[in-house]
Amino acid sequence: MSPARLYLLQRATALILAPLVLVHLGLILIAVEGGLTAAEILGRTRGSVGWAAFYGLFVLAAAIHAPIGLRNVIHEHTSWRGRSLGFATIALGLLLAGLGARAVIAVVAVP
């Protein structure tokens, strides 16, 4: 993928992540301050298309954003180059997407 595409993807996902992270952090504060139990939280998230979309988008954006940034750091500070770095970037993205999807499914899927 061209550097321009990678740059675009990283900036676009940063734009998406910024409000999602704020909402996510706010949500944690509200849940903790409000004294919600895990069961009460799951009661709100299970079967909710809205929360599934919110955290699904969050995971997707993070899984694209983070590996590109890490690839840049590795490129700048080590001699690792070439296709193996590209494959490692993709592998990290898939790992983050997989772990994130697992977490999203765990809170939104109806048992």
Binding site: S2, P3, A4, L6, Y7, N72, E76
Partner: peptide, 9 residues
């Protein structure tokens, strides 16, 4: 200028 090692770095 936008290839690898170019402006996006």
């Amino acid at each position: 200028a936008a290839a690898g090692g170019g402006c996006h770095s």
